[in-house]
């Protein structure tokens, strides 16, 4: 059944997103054409102006499509599970885990896809796909490891971000009312988002502080600054020490993202299972 849900969710969302990606690609091609013309005829003012304008629009479209995809998949989740379409979805012989899981999986894939399409369009619009900064990073083993960790962190952060939005909506829409006058469910969802966000920030602070203490010892004890300085003076270069420190932070944020995502996922499925109230 999960496979069928994924198929259905993908089909509905791709109909809209395909159109958006097509417009993005068209703008990228236009930008590429004008850039090519500008390179060919650098003295023609109209090509110089049009190239600058088209590139700006191309870059803007990449950002808009990325942010727009996140907004669209979150709006789709709300519409499909918590509004009128929920009357159909929640009466299907499937579990809330499958309903939520399918939305999370397809939403994540579409956000990744928007990044991939954005990369391609950016390349087409600028007539190049190789970036020297990236090549420099990939040459060095330590930098390559950090870059890889950053990519993995991004891949994990996307579903976590969606989990945050989805879970806030679920919490807002399953919030128990203690008054006969109904409160706007979307406002409750915003409140739930603020609360979950603050809890996550507090956890991130504790996690990073804990990492700092493990790495450099208790900052309240005497000789803390000397300990930090001595690490740099042990024959290891400061740059390598910094790289190792950044990698440590990435590992901490990666672990916290996985934990927070899992908790939000479990909480949402529990709420959909036990406290669903489509009014």
């Amino acid at each position: 059944m999960l496979r069928k849900l994924i198929h259905y969710d993908s089909k509905v969302q791709i109909r809209f997103l395909c159109g958006v990606y097509a417009v993005e690609a068209l703008l990228a091609v236009l930008s590429g054409i004008f850039l090519g013309l500008k390179n060919q005829f650098p003295d023609v003012v109209i090509f110089v102006l049009m190239s600058g304008f088209a590139r700006a629009i191309c870059v803007l479209s990449v950002v808009v499509v990325f942010v727009g995809t996140i907004i669209y998949v979150v709006a789709y989740f709300r519409r499909n599970l918590l509004r009128d379409e929920g009357y159909l979805m929640h009466t299907l012989p499937v579990s809330p885990l499958q309903l939520y899981g399918s939305k999370l999986l397809t939403g994540t894939v579409f956000v990744y896809l928007s990044v991939f399409v954005g990369y391609l369009c950016f390349g087409i619009g600028n007539l190049r796909f190789r970036y020297s900064v990236l090549e420099e990073i990939l040459k060095d083993t330590a930098d390559r490891k950090t870059f890889l960790l950053m990519v993995i962190t991004f891949l994990v952060v996307v579903p976590l971000l969606l989990c945050q939005f989805y879970s806030s909506l679920v919490l807002g829409y399953t919030w128990k009312m203690h008054s006969a006058n109904p409160v706007n469910r979307d406002l409750l969802s915003v409140l739930a988002y603020i609360i979950t966000y603050m809890v996550q920030q507090a956890l991130a602070f504790v996690g990073l502080f804990g990492y700092f203490v493990i790495r450099f010892g208790n900052p309240l004890e005497s000789g803390f600054l000397e300990r930090v300085a001595s690490l740099a003076g042990k024959g290891v270069s400061v740059q390598k020490e910094m790289v190792s420190y950044v990698q440590g932070i990435l590992w901490v944020s990666l672990t916290l993202s996985v934990i927070c995502g899992a908790v939000l996922f479990a909480l949402s499925v529990y709420q959909l299972n036990r406290n669903l109230n489509l009014e």
Binding site: M1, K4, H7, Y8, V12, R15, R79, D84, E85, G86, Y87, L88, T91, L92, P93, V94
Partner: peptide
């Protein structure tokens, strides 16, 4: 088999899609 008091299909889908949907899930 439940019929709610409100429409529950997205206005963007076609009648054939609704049949496919019911056939897939039920």
């Amino acid at each position: 088999s439940y019929l709610p008091e409100r429409p529950y299909f997205s206005s963007a889908v076609r009648v054939k899609d609704t049949l496919d949907f019911f056939e897939d899930f039920y």
